[in-house]
Amino acid sequence: MKLSVLVVDDEPIARRAIVRLLQEDPDIAAIKECGDGVSAVAEIRTRRPDLIFLDIQMPAMTGIDAVAAIGAEAMPATVFVTAYEQYAIKAFEANAVDYLVKPFSRERFATTLQRAKARLSASGYASDRILQALEALRRREDYLDRIPVRSDEQVSFVDVDDIVWIKASRNNVLIHLANGTHELRETMAALASRLDPRRFARIHRSAIINTRRVKSIHPWFNGYHVVTMDTGQQLRMSRYQHEAFLRLVSTRPEK
């Protein structure tokens, strides 16, 4: 099976690295390059390559935008290329979508290419898998960076990075910062759905914490744990929040 391949990346060095590896494979008949999403869309529509290596993070038109312009159902087989971003990787793995993380080894590239060729030889690529993976990435883009809070007649904005923890208070929430507290008229569930799950974890039905502000975690009793934040605040973790606990153990606050 001879394949035509399109390599899309705004970084020439990264693009050429993939091209060189592809040139070593006897199954690759033709290789084209694009340095931006707009030209990639035109190339896909005109030449219909069998396989695409598509960078996600590109200026102007990202890899996600390019897929949206073509339509996932009309996309050729696609290997997404990304800088290390755990959320993107989980989205791809959950939907069996092939990906490469920069920088990648020759062995990793060979494994990914073989997997892509095997899927093309079998039943092809399922567009719904690409759609589901990209939808997960789009949700990440919708997560809050700042939260508007009202004080008297004034509205100010709180950066989510400054949040230490959030407490449920009936139909409101209390946002705890290192230097104060703000009350927000929103339910815990509604706010939680708009917070990045890479950065915030619900450790109790009435408490959400910023995982980057965690100083330590200690076992308590009856399966409970105590989470100490970098402000010294100690919060009890429900014994049912095992997933949150595992995330906290494997995540270290960024300095």
Rank of each mutant, 00 (worst) to 15 (best):
V41T: 06
S238Q: 03
M237R: 07
G71Y: 08
F104I: 05
F157K: 07
R213V: 00
T187M: 08
V8A: 06
A207G: 00
D196A: 11
P103R: 12
S250I: 04
K167G: 11
G180Q: 06
A190W: 07
H218M: 13
F200A: 03
M237K: 01
S250Q: 13
M58I: 03
D142C: 08
A91Y: 04
R20K: 13
F245Q: 11
I203V: 09
A29D: 12
E107I: 10
P59A: 09
G223P: 09
M58S: 00
S127K: 07
R20W: 06
A116M: 06
E24G: 10
G223A: 12
F80D: 07
M1E: 09
R194A: 10
R115I: 02
G71R: 10
E254R: 12
V8T: 00
Y143R: 05
R119S: 11
Y84F: 15
V97M: 08
K32C: 10
D55I: 05
T82M: 06
A17S: 13
I163N: 00
R138N: 13
R115K: 12
T251R: 10
K2I: 11
P76Y: 08
G37V: 02
F157E: 10
D145Y: 09
E183K: 14
M61Q: 11
A110R: 12
K90Q: 15
V160M: 07
R213W: 00
E183S: 11
D128R: 13
L248C: 12
A110W: 01
E254K: 13
F109T: 11
L3A: 13
A66M: 14
A201W: 01
R108L: 05
L131V: 11
S123W: 06
I163Q: 01
T187Q: 03
S121R: 14
T62H: 03
A74I: 04
L184F: 10
P219S: 10
L100P: 02
A29V: 01
M75Q: 09
N172T: 14
P59G: 05
P253A: 08
K2P: 15
L184P: 02
A168R: 13
R185S: 13
Q154E: 13
R194M: 09
R129L: 04
V158A: 04
V155D: 01
G232R: 07
Y125T: 12
E107P: 00
E85Q: 13
L235E: 03
I44C: 04
T181R: 12
